[in-house]
Design a protein around this nucleic acid. Structure first.
Length: 279
DNA sequence: ACACGCTCCTGAACGC
DNA sequence: TGCGTTCAGGAGCGTG
C-alpha cells in the first residue's frame, strides 16, 4: 500500500527515465480508473516533454512543457514498472496494465492497478495549489513547514482518536495506516487517546518519530508490502521491517516487553499496537 | 466546522 | 475442489 515513502521511492525511480524526456505516446487501455481519464488524454500527452517530476503528499506530479501537470495517485494497489532494456521485449500487457507511457528516451513506463483506486489526470500548472485534490492537503512531514508546533496546533481541538487524526491528510500529508501505526508505536502513544489530550512532550516525540519512520522507510527504498513493487519491475521485497503493522499476536519488539501486538479497528481500519508500550 | 460512515474495486485468505 | 464470504484500504462525498 503506497504511502509517502513508497510514492517517494516510485518518483525517484521514475525520474531518470521520465524527467527531461518527451512522451512519444501514451497507450490507454480503459476509460477510467477511480475517475475517468481526462478528455483528450492521449492527444494532450503526445509529444510533451516532462520538465520535472516531483511528489506532493501521495501524488506524483509531472510538469509538462506546455503548462499541464500530469497527476498520478497510486491508490491502494497501483504500481509502476519500467521496461528499459532494449534487449528485452516489453511484455504483453496484463489484465490490469491500464496505461503505458512510451518515452522517447526508450523507456516504457507501465501503470498497473488491479483495484483501480488510483488516479491519473491532467491539471493546469497554475492550479496545482488550488485544485480540489491538492488544495486541502497539509504540510509535507519532511519539509520545513512541518514542526512540533504545527502538529500541536493541528491536534489541539480534535476530539477524534490520535490514530484517526493522523490519517487525515489535512493535518499532515502522506501518512497512511501503516506509518501511523508505526509512528504511534515508536512514540509510545496509545492509538485510542484523543488527539486534543496529548501532552506537549508527547507531541514533540510524535513529531520526531513521524519524521524518523518516514526517513527510515525512504532510506530502505520504500517498503513493498504485499502487492506493491519497486519501479524497476522487480518483485516486491521487504527492506523496512514493520514493528507493529500486520503483527497481531506476535511478540512486541521492545527490549524487556513480553506483550503481544494487539489489533483494534478504528474508523473502519485496523490499528496495530502494543498495549504495554503505548500509553 | 467537524466527525463519521459509505463507497469504489479486485485478489487473497478463509470457511464450509 | 469449489464456491461463497470477508478483508484490505485512500480519499471523495454525503450525512448528522
Amino acid at each position: 500500500m503506497p504511502e509517502l515513502p513508497e510514492v517517494e521511492t516510485v518518483t525517484r525511480g521514475l525520474t531518470p527515465v521520465m524527467e527531461g524526456y518527451v512522451v512519444d505516446h501514451v497507450v490507454q487501455r480503459r476509460p477510467n480508473l477511480r475517475f475517468p481519464f481526462p478528455d483528450g488524454f492521449i492527444d494532450r500527452m503526445a509529444g510533451r516533454k516532462i520538465d520535472q517530476l516531483t511528489r506532493r503528499a501521495k501524488y506524483i506530479l509531472g510538469y509538462l512543457d506546455d503548462g499541464q501537470v500530469l497527476l498520478i495517485h497510486l491508490g491502494m494497489s497501483g504500481r509502476m514498472t519500467i521496461h528499459n532494456d532494449p534487449a528485452i521485449e516489453v511484455p504483453e500487457p496484463g489484465k490490469h496494465d491500464h496505461v503505458d507511457f512510451v518515452m522517447q528516451g526508450g523507456a516504457v513506463v507501465r501503470f498497473n492497478d488491479p483495484r483501480r483506486f488510483g488516479v491519473i489526470t491532467l491539471i493546469a500548472a497554475n492550479e496545482v495549489a488550488s485544485h480540489k485534490m491538492l488544495a486541502d492537503i497539509g504540510p509535507e512531514p519532511l519539509g520545513n513547514a512541518f514542526n512540533s508546533s504545527v502538529l500541536a496546533e493541528g491536534l489541539a481541538r480534535r476530539g477524534s482518536p490520535i490514530k484517526t487524526a493522523l490519517l487525515d491528510q489535512k493535518l499532515v500529508a502522506g501518512l497512511g495506516n501503516i506509518y501511523v501505526c508505526e509512528a504511534l508505536f515508536r512514540s509510545g502513544i496509545a492509538p485510542d487517546r484523543l488527539a486534543k489530550d496529548l501532552k506537549s512532550g508527547e507531541i514533540d516525540r510524535l513529531y520526531r518519530e513521524i519524521r524518523l519512520v518516514l526517513e527510515d522507510a525512504i532510506a530502505a527504498g520504500g517498503s513493498s508490502l504485499k502487492d506493491h513493487r519497486q519501479t524497476n519491475g522487480e518483485l516486491g521485497y521487504f527492506q523496512y521491517n514493520f514493528r507493529v503493522y500486520g503483527r497481531e499476536g506476535e511478540p512486541c519488539v521492545s527490549d524487556g516487553c513480553d506483550s503481544t501486538i494487539d489489533r483494534i479497528v478504528q474508523a473502519g481500519r485496523s490499528t496495530f499496537f502494543c498495549p504495554t508500550c503505548q500509553k
